[in-house]
Design a protein around this nucleic acid. Structure first.
Lengths: 81, 81
DNA sequence: GTGTGACTTTAAGTCCGTC
DNA sequence: GGACGGACTTAAAGTCACA
């Protein structure tokens, strides 16, 4: 049976975005806490975002991208979105 | 005095994203209501997102992009983000 | 066909802590 | 350094009526 790739998979999308954030964070050698501080968000919240447990708002995506030194669209493209 | 473009401008960012959505919606000849229906969100809510009055979540960005037939990252790049 | 205000429900986001 | 939890506050989602 063919893979049904166009159906939405909200949890998977959130996990993919979280993974993209995590990979870029590690690539530049930041801890979750350092990233959270740089982005101005809570440490526990940053962890939940990376694990795909939060439907993060666009403003926090912008803040996180800024803290990572990349464009918000880069994070989505890393995630295949 | 030089333009200080790197300072965050949350309201402006939300307006830019809303404008990007509106432009793509009009380009394919959809009404707000038709877009909202296709994205599975409320018409009034869609209007507020287009006007930059909502800090929209990433999942709704994904739904809107899908309804517009573009990638979520396209919307951000249209917005210069 | 859209803007807007008032509203309820849901979840984002914070802050404390422990493992 | 990060996962995870509880209790809490804030804000977005979502709905509706009306201009």
């Amino acid at each position: 049976m063919a893979r049904i790739s166009f159906l939405s998979d909200a949890n998977g999308d959130l996990r993919r975005i979280g993974s993209a954030i995590r990979e870029r964070r590690k690539a530049i050698g930041l801890s979750q806490e350092a990233l959270a501080d740089a982005a101005g968000i809570d440490r526990a919240h940053a962890g939940k975002i990376e694990r795909g447990e939060r439907n993060v708002t666009i403003l926090n995506i912008l803040r996180i991208a800024s803290a990572l030194g990349c464009r918000p669209s880069d994070l989505l493209m890393d995630s295949g979105l």
